[in-house]
Design a protein around this nucleic acid. Structure first.
Lengths: 103, 103
DNA sequence: CTAAATTTGCCAAATAACGTCAAGACAAAA
DNA sequence: TTTTGTCTTGACGTTATTTGGCAAATTTAG
């Protein structure tokens, strides 16, 4: 499992010298669960990401981006044409946005 | 749900004038299930995509790419920074590949 | 209209993801 | 060495999601 997100979490947390226990309690989850989130064994909930951004004094949007990226990464990391897949998605995303803006 | 993949399936199938019933029977699934795959209500299995590529006389890699893209699309289509998310993933994918090739 | 093809809603089974507990590793402090 | 605090891991039961099929409805073609 990917750790783009979890690693960032850990970096920020260590910089602020906050124990996992502390963040876990604010999120109202077990320290084991929080540990797994950092390690990429469990997925944080969107809500939790926002809370974590506050606690770690970082930009929520940025953190959410990594959080999403993690999920995408896990989905295609094993594919040998991962990069091309991203291109296909990118094309379709922009197409959609164009349509949407016309309405 | 996305239909990047399903639409392609349908296009090819109609071009060859094959009824869903036929493809479904080769895949050994219900026609309803196959229908849902084309509509994007169900996900085809990787194996099935390969089989479908044969039946529809098209490139399996290409079809698999769309199949994967569909999954990614569904994951991030609702995000307002979808495009940026893809960039993050792309960076991490290439990083990984660089490392891998060094080994 | 009739028949074939496609689509939909719903269900039960299978699968995946979840959170917690208990046990353990590790390092720093006593 | 024993203790203390932090982090990590595996196993387990629970919950959520996904799956395939059936039956019924709808659409399409002849």
């Amino acid at each position: 499992m990917s750790t783009i997100f979890g690693n960032r979490l850990r970096t920020f947390r260590e910089k602020l010298q906050i124990p996992q226990r502390k963040l876990a309690s604010v999120l109202e989850i077990d320290t084991a669960t929080y540990c797994k989130i950092e390690k990429g064994d469990r997925r944080a909930k969107r809500e939790q990401v926002v809370t974590l951004a506050e606690l770690l004094q970082t930009d929520a949007k940025e953190l959410l981006r990594l959080w999403s990226a993690d999920k995408v990464y896990d989905l295609i990391a094993d594919e040998d044409e991962a990069a091309q897949i991203l291109n296909v998605v990118a094309e379709n995303i922009t197409h959609y946005k164009r349509q949407k803006s016309k309405i």
